[in-house]
Simulated assay, not measured.
Amino acid sequence: MPTSMPAPSIRIPIELLTPPAFHQFGTVIENPATSPSAKLPIPHRVPPPDSVTANQGFATKYLDVTHMSNLYTLAPSKKPAKAVMNMFVCKPRELRPHEASMSLPSSWGDLDIDDDEDENGNYERQLLDIGILERHPFTTQTFIPMGLAQQDKSTQYLVIVAPTLPASASRRYSNRPPPYPTPKIERKKSFRDIFARARPSPFTNEATPPPSLFSRLHPSARPKGPGIPDLKNLRAFVATGSQAVTYGAGTWHAPMIVIGDRPIDFVVVQFANEVGIEDCQEIILKPDSTAPEGVVVMVDTDSSGQVQVKTGVASVKAKL
């Protein structure tokens, strides 16, 4: 049975998926010459990856566009993992009608986001309830959409992520310890082993991981720690068909969410060792009995069905 935690009554606006905005959660894979990020003001762009000419001059090869991590050597079972590639066929989600609420839109504060009309007066707001988050503590996970054009306005997908709270907050906000598996420390008799056990554990947020273990990893691929998700700072991004996304190891995220009129096929690349609690952990979000609702993402669409960006860089009238 997955762990559960109380969820605040809160509404989240949608942002544009860009590498800088997503940096703490993972990496965005996109063509730097034609991506939505290329249209942003210069201060909000990031340098493109290094590139070389390939295929006898008929291709440009961008190097290290994402960073994969296999951290299963830290898993309690010590069972080795292998690289796996699966396909998820994700159906469009059913949304519920918009209802007025006093909820604030997450860490963005009290924003004026009630302008629900486009140039034709056809903006429509619907609501998406977020009832569960998951994470993969020892592996990155890359989602690659297939058959979805960048210009497709009627079908898009959302990337919903949350930061990780310190481990000490798990018992405060939940009646159970964190689901993140922590290694068992065997008692040793020698003084050398006793002093060795005093080194910081890589599974706590209260101490810096040993640099020899994580120094080679890109910051986006390093584990996030054992804590529960920080729901008040949950973020929601809308992606186009020209973008893939890699979740960093241990990043709390919602299952992939398709918005529109048809399914999207995703090829998913990760590591796995077939030990359930080490491959995937879930936490159920339960609204308080007195709360009118729980965690909700506001989905605004125009007359063509295109999801609108309401917060952050390129907000309100952004065209993807």
Rank of each mutant, 00 (worst) to 15 (best):
E206L: 12
R171K: 13
I14K: 15
T240K: 04
R235D: 04
P41Q: 10
T66V: 10
V267A: 13
S35C: 10
S303N: 11
K184Q: 15
C90Q: 14
M146L: 11
L165P: 11
F237E: 02
D193V: 07
S37I: 09
C280F: 03
L234T: 05
M102Y: 15
I160G: 00
S201C: 10
P48D: 01
P226I: 09
L128T: 00
I194M: 09
L128Q: 04
I12A: 01
K91Y: 06
T182V: 01
V269P: 01
F58P: 05
I257N: 14
K286I: 15
F237K: 00
R216I: 12
A162Q: 15
K224S: 04
I284W: 09
V65G: 01
P6K: 10
T27D: 04
A236L: 01
V28K: 11
P263E: 08
Y180T: 08
K232R: 15
P19M: 12
P76G: 05
H44C: 03
R135P: 04
I130E: 06
P13Q: 14
E30T: 09
R135C: 02
M87N: 06
L74K: 11
D112T: 15
E282T: 14
A83F: 11
M85T: 10
Q126H: 07
I194K: 11
G109R: 10
K91V: 07
H44Y: 15
S242E: 08
D129I: 13
N122R: 06
T240Y: 00
L104W: 07
S69D: 08
S51I: 11
V307L: 14
M256C: 08
S242A: 09
S154G: 02
I14M: 03
S4K: 02
D115K: 12
H44Q: 09
L63M: 13
K153N: 06
F22H: 02
